[in-house]
Amino acid sequence: MKTFLLVTLLVATASATLPKIGLFHPRERIINGQDAADGQFPYQISYQWGLLGFYQHVCGGSIISPTWILTAGHCVTEVPALGEYKIIAGITGLNENNADKQEINVIDKIVHPNFNGGVGPNDVALLRLATPLEFNDRVQPISLPAADSEPSGDTVLSGWGSISTSEFPEMPNQLQTADLPLLSLDDCSAAIDALLEPGEENPLSAESNVCTGPLSGGTGACSGDSGGPLAQDDTVIGIVSWGFTPCGSEGAPSVYTKVSNFIDFINENVSDLPK
């Protein structure tokens, strides 16, 4: 519980003028996205935490097989241990009810063994479901990239995202989406260096991360997008990991776990990947 509160403080105390580094943590989301169309992202799930029968969205995730969800490591380590977890698939609105909606409990969580928590490399985890998803037009797995491939070009981000660029999120019920350009690792690292405090170490990793802009600000990932998919051509290339608050700040990139570097980790744990 202590780490969850620490991340909350990282968001709440961010300077209004100088962006501060921090995890994209639960309950704050995409900046200046637009409403997704019904069924536009059939691989997107809402990962929810519940206590005493009340549930709330805490992270995103991607369906990669009937019984496994790909998400961020900090979506496991930085949320409460007490309570229950489930995923909801087949929805565009968090309060939506439709014939394709599926709610399934999470019975196992596997965090990458080299993820040390907080802001850092190897921020990836797998969630095992109690029963298999039933695939239909609104519930589908997303493809995985080739091992060790390097993405480039434009991407699409989805998540239940805030429309606020301040420290105080304004959260829509509707799934949000934004088209974002990938940044080179050199440009991303330079942008991060420019925002760090003196003596603060740049946590970007060539093996572990990809980044998106625009560095002009105004659009980008934010906290509750954590664990959600950054995609190209229905392939998940990134997992929302960390960035700067306030989200969407000028000069501040969004940072994702590079999925292509974790294909072995996924294959070692997931036995029912689509062929």
Rank of each mutant, 00 (worst) to 15 (best):
E28L: 06
G50H: 00
G33N: 08
F54R: 12
G53I: 00
L51F: 09
H25R: 03
D35H: 04
L51M: 07
P26Y: 05
Q40V: 05
F54Y: 04
R29A: 05
F54I: 15
G50Q: 05
G33V: 03
A37M: 08
G53S: 01
L51W: 01
G33I: 09
I31A: 10
Q34H: 12
G50S: 14
Q40T: 09
G53F: 00
W49K: 09
F54S: 15
L51N: 09
P26E: 06
D38S: 11
I45G: 06
F24V: 03
I45Q: 04
G50P: 04
F24P: 09
Q40I: 02
H25M: 07
Q44L: 11
R27L: 09
R27H: 08
I30S: 01
L52N: 10
A37E: 07
R29P: 01
R27D: 14
Y47V: 08
Q44E: 08
A36E: 12
N32F: 00
Q48C: 09
S46A: 10
P26C: 08
P42V: 02
N32P: 06
H25N: 10
P42S: 04
F41W: 10
I31S: 00
Q34S: 13
A37F: 05
W49V: 08
G39S: 09
G39F: 12
R27S: 10
W49Y: 10
R27W: 01
E28H: 08
Q44S: 02
D38H: 04
L52G: 04
A36R: 00
H25V: 08
P26K: 05
I31D: 00
P42T: 03
Y47T: 06
I45V: 15
N32E: 03
H25A: 15
D38L: 15
G50Y: 02
A36S: 15
Q48S: 06
A37T: 07
W49H: 14
Q40N: 06
G50E: 07
E28R: 06
L51D: 12
S46D: 03
P42Q: 05
R29Q: 05
D38G: 03
L52S: 15
P26G: 14
F54K: 15
G33M: 14
I45E: 13
D38M: 13
E28A: 13
F41E: 06
R29L: 08
G39N: 08
H25I: 11
G39D: 06
E28T: 02
Q34G: 15
R27Q: 08
